[in-house]
Design a protein around this nucleic acid. Structure first.
Length: 424
RNA sequence: GGAGGCGUCGCAUAGUGGUCUAGUGCGCACGCUUGGAAAGCGUGUAAUCCGCAAGGAUUCGAGAGUUCGAAUCUCUCCGCCUCCGCCA
């Protein structure tokens, strides 16, 4: 959610963002509702003042009349508030000046590439064929037991997953490692290490709503009997950690790295990526969620991207970094940077990482604020970014590091965790 | 799942219908004192909204209700604690 004052003072910027993010909202209606809301609340304040006075004087008759009056205005005011808020929530975040304006993913801008795409002396296979042959991916049994878009990850691939998690956690909790990454990326912000978290995978729908992620309800697994839903990402329970609280400036930045399964119904993606484990209803992910000072949040995002790149470089996976354009970026995002990793079996780069800077957009709804050293209070800035998404990285590793005989080379950094250098 | 207790300004606690404009302690900030510090003393210390300001309104877990008036009474919900049961 944006600040209504900001919207009033920057109508052009907000209107442009609405248009660039392909939405249609009339800001004049919003302003009109806001005026009405203000007038009504001033009226209520005044009547309440009189009411308090009457109560103090124990004036039963006047008090009784004023009570009826305030009830009448109150109901009108509640209706206006509701309408105002509903419209406010439809307004997307503005986008950063360096975000490319565009219609869809075709206008996303590649800003860097790293690594050499592998050249095979044989016809490379896709991850499903490789994984099925090696007995480490089993989608057929999963289809019988649970349904389509689920899988059993077994044997060395399961080991590989834990190795990846361990490798990343080690990196993210080590201040020295982080400093190296920041220095290489020219980022100058405090290097507070990440706090590892195992968050809940259920979230109250009302809280998820305050994350301002407009993942429609159809995309979530809902449990109405318990008023709960499964998270689509650890972000959904990491982001609200400081809901309704004020963080002292000296305690920022706060960085979390959460490990959890993510659950997505993938409604509306029928037929897309149906083969293999690229698009699953359930997958595991290490997710970074950070809270920082407003003036540091762009650098914070650059830092998170640098971490993502460093992880992919450790693994030796070729990738490209992409500035996501306005038409393709998330509703609450100020700037979105994706990393796409080369997948030979698909013969293209596929999204494996996303870094979302939401600035004050989420924190305003979550009511997560910072008390500056001078005592002023303002919303903190929030970033969230994938550290590693396990399903898709499995795909990348299997497809990039396959040998002619169908075996898979294990990335050097992971060998110590698994105790061998090959899946065969 | 059963029984009981409890949710108050960062933390701890007082407050059982009007004197609560929510007290006190700790913490924190500033000042005095000091060569400097600690201690001591003094002052200040929740947020949100409206307003240029003066000031006003709202919030005592959440919501609804009773009342001229609610932290305080009633109802519903949520959370926490203790004991019992079940259980990884």
């Amino acid at each position: 959610m944006l600040d209504i004052k900001f919207i009033r003072e920057n109508k052009d910027i907000v209107a442009a963002a609405i248009k660039n993010k392909k939405r249609d909202i009339n800001l004049d209606i919003l302003f009109h509702l806001h005026d009405k809301k203000k007038t009504l609340s001033q009226k209520i304040d005044e009547v309440n003042r009189q009411r308090n006075e009457a109560a103090k004087k124990r004036d039963v008759i006047a008090g009784s009349d004023l009570k009826k009056e305030v009830e009448k205005i109150q109901s009108e005011s509640t209706a206006v508030d509701k309408e105002f808020l509903a419209l406010m929530m439809k307004i997307p975040n503005i986008h950063s000046p360096d975000t490319p304006v565009g219609e869809d993913e075709n206008q996303n801008k590649v800003i860097r590439t790293w690594g050499e795409k592998p050249v095979f002396s044989f016809a490379p296979k896709d991850h499903l064929e490789l994984g099925t042959n090696l007995g480490i991916i089993d989608t057929e049994t999963a289809a019988k037991i649970t349904g389509s878009r689920f899988s059993y990850i077994k044997g060395d691939l399961a080991m590989l997953q834990f190795a990846l998690i361990q490798h990343c956690l080690k990196k993210l909790t080590n201040a020295g490692e982080l400093e190296k990454i920041a220095k290489a990326a020219n980022v100058e912000i405090p290097m507070t290490p990440f706090i590892p978290v195992l968050p809940p995978v259920f979230v109250k729908p009302a809280v998820q709503n305050r994350m301002a992620r407009f993942l429609t309800p159809e995309e979530h697994y809902m449990f109405p009997d318990d008023d709960l839903m499964l998270v689509g990402s650890a972000e959904h329970t990491l982001g609200p950690i400081h809901m309704d609280s004020i963080i002292e400036e000296k305690n920022l930045p706060i960085r979390y790295v959460g490990y959890s399964s993510a659950f997505r119904r993938e409604a509306g993606s029928h037929g897309k990526d149906i083969k293999g484990i690229i698009r699953q209803h359930q997958f595991d992910k290490l997710e970074m969620e950070t809270f920082c000072l407003p003036e540091n949040s762009m650098q914070e995002q650059d830092f998170l991207v640098a971490i993502q790149e460093s992880i992919l470089q450790d693994l030796g996976l070729p990738y490209q970094v992409v500035m996501v354009c306005t038409g393709d970026m998330g509703f609450p995002d100020y700037r979105q940077i994706d990393i796409e990793t080369w997948m030979p079996g698909q013969n293209k780069y596929r999204e494996t990482h996303s870094a979302d800077l939401t600035a004050s957009f989420q924190s305003r709804r979550l009511n997560t604020r910072v008390r500056r050293n001078d005592g002023k209070i303002e919303p903190v800035h929030m970033n969230d970014a994938t550290a590693i998404a396990l399903g898709r990285i499995h795909v990348a590793i299997l497809e990039n590091f396959q040998e002619a005989d169908g075996s898979i080379r294990i990335p050097k950094v992971l060998v110590p965790y698994i105790g061998k250098d090959k899946i065969e």
